[in-house]
Design a binder for these strands. Sequence first.
DNA 1: TCTGGGGTCCTAGGACCC
DNA 2: TCTGGGGTCCTAGGACCC
Length: 401
Amino acid sequence: MKRIILHIDVNNAFLSWSAILLLHQGCNYDLREKYAVIGGDESKRHGIVLAKSPLAKKKGIKTAETLFSARKKCPNLMIVPPNYKWYQKKSYQLFKLLSSYTPDIEVASIDECYLDYTPIKNLYGDVLEFAKKLQQEIYDKLEFTVNIGIANNKLCAKMASDFSKPNKIHTLFDDEIENKMYPLPINDLFGIGKKTTIKLRNLNINTISDLANSDPEYLSKYFKNQAFKMIEWAKGIDDSPVISENVERKGISNSTTLSHNLVYKEEVYPILEAISDNLAIDLRSKKKYASVIAVTLKDKYFRSYSHQTKLKNATNITSEIYDVSKKLLDEMWSNEPVRLVGIRLDNLTSTSPHQLSLFDSLEKHEENKVLDETVDKLKAKYGSQVIKKASLVDNKIKKKY
DNA sequence: TCTGGGGTCCTAGGACCC
DNA sequence: TCTGGGGTCCTAGGACCC
């Protein structure tokens, strides 16, 4: 039996949500009707487009391009800073509303999710009618529009919700794939990014149809195992299930682009410490432990470097994470100025099998644990500024060059 | 004042073991 | 003196997504 899957995607999420907040605050215009983008702070080198209005899109402005370049395309562009707390709130409201219809919802990101309609279609009837009602209800109650894609699997639902925007509903059932999906350019296919597009075009594979009809053996010469998957995607084949339960995070990370490049590794230490603390607090709040720690740097040419190590004992203690990060940094330090510093924690587990042989280090471990618990309690009591910690540290570092 | 931040998955190569 | 090969774990880096 064929499944029926919906993909629900908020139109211009950050921009719509900021527009709503502004209206609530008494603003006399709707950001969605202006030449406007949500963008980061350029003085902190966070200056990229996070979301754009339809008019800004018409000017050729793209998500993730620099504000510098966006402004060139549209000199009167309004640039509004993001408000992540508000976005979290709107996101939560959306998923809560959807949950009133079914628990079979997979949250894919802050502004999109999949909904398995198969088990509830006898309850709510024709899926297209259901989608229309849902779209209207979201607008009435939450004040923003969504696109809905309807298909027999997640991949096609996702492709369908992307067809034309905003406030649209599209279907891409199995028997529509050849008509609706095959003619699209190869870079429209989910999973095919910039690099792969270039390689495929070089092989004269330009449309999804071209890819769907290519010879797997031939293609695997260029893309290895990835080739077989790409061809399946192009054919609109996908049997991955809608996973509703809160999937366990595989890892967590925190990174910050510095307001100016750092030249000495001693300047990087306090940033690493702040990031370690952010991450450790996050781990502890989730009652998790990490056993892989990775430090990432980005240089002035935007090249990334990383070093990682696996711990004998998983940890969520700030000082332990910091000590390891510091070692990794020392190890990879090459006297090149860095623009970004980040830490990623992987192999998360729910238990820490602490089997230390030396009593003194075990004592040290217990000491640190007590220290962290105390700090956590204080922060819970007095409110925390932890999110901004790394950038606060960054701001304190005086510009030297 | 040109280029964020948080994720997932994959691959290649080296180490190590049997 | 020639010097296997499979399996698994680990690390570094790349591609992609929102």
